[in-house]
Design a protein around this nucleic acid. Structure first.
Lengths: 193, 193
DNA sequence: GTGTAAATTGACTAGTCAGTCAATATGGTG
DNA sequence: CACCATATTGACTGACTAGTCAATTTACAC
C-alpha cells in the first residue's frame, strides 16, 4: 500500500496561501495552484475535496498558528501591562516573520469564501485575549470601559502597527516602531494617573 | 443627438459597489451587475471600458467622498485634540451611514484589482491627516514620535472602532462606543501630564 | 520478484466569464 | 414630421474554470 504524502499536501497549502493573498480566491484558478505546487490537477482534488475545502483548511491552520505564537510566555508575566506588551511583541514578531500568513488572515478574516465553521473555530483561539483585558480592568490597571470594544480597537491598532513596521527592512527601526506603537496602545487602555 | 444617461451610470456603480463588497471582484460577474442594475450587458461596457475600469472609478469616488466627509468643519476647531475628535466623529458618522462604502474601501484598499493610479489618487486625499498630526507634535499636544507611524495606527484603530460600533443598532450605545474609542486614540497620542 | 492497494496523472466535460457587434430604439434638432 | 447621431440591446464568441475519471505509476507487504 501507498501512503498519502504530507509534503505534497503541504506544498499545495503553501502555494495556495501565496496565490490567494496575491490574487484573491476567485482570482486563483486551481490549475494555477497545482501547477505552481508541482502536482497534477487531480492530486489537488485528492487532498482537498473542493477549492472551498482548501481555503478552509488553510484558514484554520494559519489562525491557530497565530494564536499559539501570540500566547508564548504569556503566563510568565504578572501584570496586565506586561502581559499585553509581551502579547504585542509576540504578534508583531510573528507577523514580521510571516507576512504572507498575516496578509492572508487579514484578507479572509471576514470573507464569505471561508465557512462559518472555520471562522468560529478561528475566533475561539483568541477568546483568552478578552479575558486578559477583563482581568486588567478588575485589578484597576485598565480603564473601566466595555472590554470587547477595547479589545477590538486594540486588535485593529496592533494590526495597523505591524503593517507599518513591515514597511522598513531595518530591524532596529522596526523595534522602535513597534515599541512606540505598543506605547500608543497601552496609553490608550491604562487608567490615568 | 442622444445624451448619455447619468442615472444609468449611477445605477451600475451602486449595484457594483454592493456586489463587489458582498462577493468580491472575481466573484461578481459583469452579467450579474448589469442584470441587477436593470441594463443590458452592452450598456455596462458602453459606460465602462472594462471591469477594471468600473472598479477603478468606484474606488476613486468612494475614497474622495470619504475624505470630503471627514474634513467637515475641521477648520472650525482650534487644538489638535479638538480637530482629531471632530475628524473621528465625522469618520464614524460617515461609516455608519454608509456601511457598504466603508466595507468596499477596507476590502479594496490594498487590492491588486484597483490600479496603482487610483490607489495613489485615493491616498492623496488623506495626506492632510499626517500634517494634522505633525502640527500637534510641533505645538506640544502630541507625543514626539514618527508622525506617519502614529497616523497609521490611528487610522487602523479608527477603522476597528467603526466596525465595532456598527455591531449595535442602538444610537446611544453607538455614541458611547465611539466616545470611548476616540478617548483610546487620544490617550494613545497625547503627551503625558 | 510479484501482487496490489492506493497515489498520481492529465485529457476531458459541462458550465461560466469578459467583452463584441450588428441590429434596434430613442430623443434631440431643424 | 423626418433625420440622424448615439444610447441600448442581447445573442454570440473564444477563453477559461472547477472538478471527474480511466489509465498509469508508485511503494510497500509478502
Amino acid at each position: 500500500m501507498r501512503e498519502p504524502s504530507p509534503e505534497k499536501q503541504e506544498a499545495i497549502l503553501n502555494t495556495a496561501l501565496t496565490l490567494f493573498t496575491e490574487r484573491g480566491f476567485f482570482g486563483t484558478p486551481t490549475s494555477l495552484i497545482s501547477k505552481k505546487a508541482g502536482v497534477a490537477t487531480g492530486t489537488l482534488f485528492f487532498y482537498f475535496r473542493t477549492k472551498e475545502d482548501l481555503i478552509d483548511t488553510l484558514y484554520r491552520r494559519v489562525k491557530s498558528e497565530a494564536a499559539r505564537e501570540m500566547c508564548r510566555g504569556l503566563d510568565k508575566e504578572k501584570t496586565a501591562k506586561d502581559k499585553l506588551r509581551r502579547l504585542g511583541k509576540n504578534a508583531a514578531g510573528w507577523g514580521i516573520r510571516n507576512p504572507a500568513k498575516l496578509k492572508f488572515m487579514e484578507q479572509f478574516a471576514h470573507s464569505p469564501f471561508v465557512s462559518t465553521n472555520a471562522h468560529e473555530e478561528g475566533m475561539s483561539h483568541f477568546l483568552f485575549l478578552e479575558d486578559l483585558v477583563r482581568d486588567g480592568i478588575r485589578n484597576g490597571e485598565i480603564r473601566d470601559v466595555d472590554p470587547s470594544g477595547l479589545f477590538c480597537i486594540m486588535a485593529s491598532a496592533l494590526s495597523g502597527l505591524i503593517a507599518h513596521a513591515l514597511l522598513t527592512d531595518d530591524p532596529a527601526e522596526r523595534e522602535k516602531i513597534i515599541g512606540n506603537g505598543l506605547d500608543f496602545i497601552w496609553y490608550g487602555m491604562k487608567v490615568e494617573e
